[in-house]
């Protein structure tokens, strides 16, 4: 997730050159995405960091790694990544960036179909 040094009060200058290191894959990522939005997960492995409290909106004291667990679709068709914190089990949802790893996104989207809990042959009769 975003780094310690980001200054939300001064987004124009500090964010442009600001980077953070992914806690999972170690990639150094610029905090500002190409479309001007702030990143909240690594574009390569989609892992995030629990630094924002989802309920209260303030900074969180957990600071643990968050793994992507599923893809949610909004009513307008946009994809969201659901993250789960490995330490406190909090779930958050974040919008997908344009340069996010499409292979991991598609893998998460089709993951339920790899191990269906019921035989899918019954759906052929519908």
């Amino acid at each position: 997730m975003s780094s310690n040094h980001a200054q939300p009060s001064n987004p124009d200058n500090s964010l442009k050159i600001d980077t953070f290191t992914c806690v999972w894959c170690g990639l150094t990522v610029s905090t500002l995405a190409a479309d001007g939005r702030r990143r909240n997960h690594c574009p390569s492995c989609l892992h995030s960091r629990h630094v924002l409290d989802q309920a209260e909106g303030g900074p969180s004291e957990c600071r643990s790694r968050m793994t992507p667990i599923s893809i949610a679709v909004l009513r307008n068709g946009d994809w969201m990544v659901i993250h789960r914190c490995v330490r406190c089990d909090t779930l958050t949802s974040n919008p997908v960036c344009t340069d996010d790893n499409q292979l991991i996104l598609m893998r998460m989207a089709v993951r339920p179909l790899a191990q269906p809990p019921f035989p899918l042959e019954a759906f052929g009769d519908l």
Partner: peptide
């Protein structure tokens, strides 16, 4: 909202 899968399927 969405469907997720545990590592054990």
């Amino acid at each position: 909202l969405s469907m997720s899968v545990r590592p054990d399927g």
